[in-house]
Amino acid sequence: MPLDESFVGRSYPPTEPYEVGREKIREFAHAIGDANPAYADPEAAKALGHPDVIAPPTFVFSITFAAAQTVIQDPQLGLDYSRVVHGDQKFAYSRPVRAGDRLSVTSVIESVSSRAGNEIVDVRGEVHDASGEHVVTVHTKLVARMTGAGE
């Protein structure tokens, strides 16, 4: 079944805020093996001009992907989630994510297409803080491989 192309341009309401904690950033930085002091030491982060510890550039994906789940698992869209792989990923920052942020994600379906049996969905997540300031735009391309090809 082809994807429902009327989903292109569809936007979903902002998510409940995710509160970014210092210890969650520390845990994530440890998991990627990164000892950069800007992630763990508030004083080191301040010396770089940040009000508190900042998060590694890819940290925010966990937050936007949770928001995107609602979109891509919408049964009306018709995406076979069991075949989905991550195609492309991009972040465009207005400023780094930092401890104390309360981040809300607005997801938009940017495009829906089929190519060589693969079904492709591009989701854009706009991330804003509690004051409404833009923090980062997150582009995620998901590919459902070879639907109907029996592979």
Binding site: A38, L48, H86, D88, F91, A92, Y93
Partner: peptide, 18 residues
């Protein structure tokens, strides 16, 4: 990139294809 720049906040955009 972040090790080179020193400040991870210096990364304004970052994208990849898997």
């Amino acid at each position: 990139i972040t090790d080179w720049a020193g400040d991870p906040g210096a990364v304004l955009e970052y994208g990849v294809r898997f």
